[in-house]
Simulated assay, not measured.
Amino acid sequence: MSIREIRLPADLKPALLSGHPWIYRDHIPPNTYLKNGSWVRVSAGNVAAYGIWDAHGPIAVRLFSRHTIPDIAWVEARVREAWDVRAPLRARGDTNAYRWLYGESDGLPGIVVDLYDRHAILRTYTDSVRKLVPWVVAALRRVAPVDGIAERQEDEFGEPRWHVHWGQRPPDELVVLENGWHMYANLLHGQKTGLFLDQRENRRELMRWCGGKRVLNCFAYNGGFSLAAALGGARFVESVDVAANALEDARRTFALNGLDPDAHAFTRADVFDLLEQYAREGRTFDVVVLDPPSFARSKNQRHKAIRAYTRLNALALNLIPPGGLLVSSSCTAQVSHADFLNMLATAAAKAGRRLRILHDAGQPLDHPVPPHFPEGRYLKFVIAHVADVA
C-alpha cells in the first residue's frame, strides 16, 4: 500500500513516543493536502506512527499504531482488550449499561461504543474514521454476544433514526440496570447515546450522603442523581430541568423503582433563574446537586465557562445552610481539574462560605484515561461540606 509520509517538528518526538493520539494541524507542514480518511505515516526524529488524515478539523491526524497500518485483526484486538478491561464492572452483576469502547483511550480514536444490555450503540466523532466502522462492527460481534449493533443518525429533516449495522434494531427506549436499580434509557431521542454513563459511579456515591436530607438536583435530565438520592433515603428530592420530557422520564424512573413520584417534586425551570428565586424566598436544601451541560466546546470558550460555573455554584451555595453539602460536577474538557477547584473556591468566597472537599472523583473504569492522553479526562465530581466563613 502506498502511504504518504509526513515529517513533524522534532519537538513532537516525546508525544509520539508516549502514544499521544493527536497531531494538530498547526504542526503539519504547509501545503499538505490529502484525501480525508487516508492512512499516513508521521515521524519526528527517529520515532514514527501510523494514523488517519482528517482534512477538515483542527486535529489533522489521529494516530492508531506505532508499528503498522491497522487491519481488521488489529482492530479486533483493541475491541477485545477494551472488553477485558471492563470485566470487573460486569462481574458486579448490578449494571448492564456501560461504555465498551472509549475512542482514543481504548486505541480507536474517534470511535465510541456504548452497550445497553445486549444492544451496542456506535458513534463516530469524525467522518475520517468511518472506513473503520465495518471492522469495528465485525469485532464487536466476535468478541461478545450482542443482539444488535446500531448507530443513531439523522434523516433529511434532522430527526434521529436508526442505522442498523448488524442484528436487531434497538428499541427506542430500554430499561437497563445500573448499580442494582432500573433506569429508562431513551436510546433514540435521549442525550448522548441514551444515558450519561460516565456519572454511574458518582450516582452510586451520592446515595450514601443523602439519608434523611432535602435534596435539590439541578439539570436533572432523566433523574439519575435524583433516583440515587431517593434510594439513599432522602426525605424529599426536587428535580429541576428545562425539558419537560426529561422530567417525565424522571417521574417514571422513580415509579419503576418503587418510589412514589408524588412525594417529590419535578420542576420545569431554568436553573439559574430558579436558584435566584429560591434564594429570594429563603428556601434551603441540605444537599444541592449541580450537573450542568458543557459550558465550553472549544478552548476560546474556557473563561466564559468558568464564569458560568462560578455564578452557578455561588447561587447554589446561597441555598445550603452550614453543615449541608454542595455536589458539583463539570463535563467541560476545557476546564481542568485545577481550574474546577479554583472555581469552587471563588464561588464560595462570593457566597461568603467555606468549602471542604469530602469526595473528589472523575470518570469510572469504562471511561479510562491513559497518562499520555490527559485530554481524555474531562469529568470532575466533588462533594463538599459547606460552612460559614469563620
Results as ranks from 00 to 15, higher is better:
367 H>D: 05
57 G>C: 09
44 A>I: 07
280 R>L: 11
194 G>V: 12
99 R>N: 09
122 L>W: 03
348 A>I: 11
384 A>S: 14
66 R>S: 14
70 P>S: 00
199 Q>C: 03
230 A>M: 07
291 D>A: 10
317 L>P: 02
325 L>Y: 12
2 S>G: 01
286 D>K: 03
327 V>G: 05
188 L>Q: 02
79 V>G: 06
232 G>K: 06
2 S>A: 08
47 V>W: 00
209 W>G: 03
192 K>W: 09
26 D>V: 02
105 S>R: 04
360 D>V: 01
23 I>T: 09
112 V>L: 11
233 G>H: 06
289 V>K: 02
85 V>R: 15
125 Y>K: 06
9 P>I: 02
18 S>C: 03
157 F>H: 12
175 V>I: 15
227 L>I: 15
136 V>I: 15
231 L>M: 14
52 I>F: 05
18 S>K: 13
139 A>K: 12
19 G>H: 10
377 R>M: 13
177 L>A: 09
139 A>H: 13
73 A>N: 14
15 A>M: 10
20 H>D: 04
185 A>F: 10
168 Q>N: 12
269 A>R: 12
194 G>T: 11
367 H>N: 07
69 I>E: 01
337 H>R: 12
9 P>Q: 02
185 A>C: 09
228 A>S: 14
361 A>N: 08
146 V>Y: 00
38 S>M: 00
167 G>H: 00
189 H>Q: 13
101 L>S: 03
239 S>W: 02
18 S>Q: 12
291 D>F: 03
212 G>A: 08
56 H>N: 09
172 D>T: 06
157 F>V: 02
254 F>M: 14
239 S>F: 01
128 S>A: 15
335 V>F: 06
102 Y>F: 15
2 S>Q: 09
235 R>G: 12
273 D>M: 05
374 P>Q: 08
186 N>D: 15
110 G>T: 11
139 A>G: 13
62 R>M: 02
281 E>V: 03
258 G>R: 01
120 A>D: 07
382 V>C: 11
49 A>I: 07
147 D>H: 09
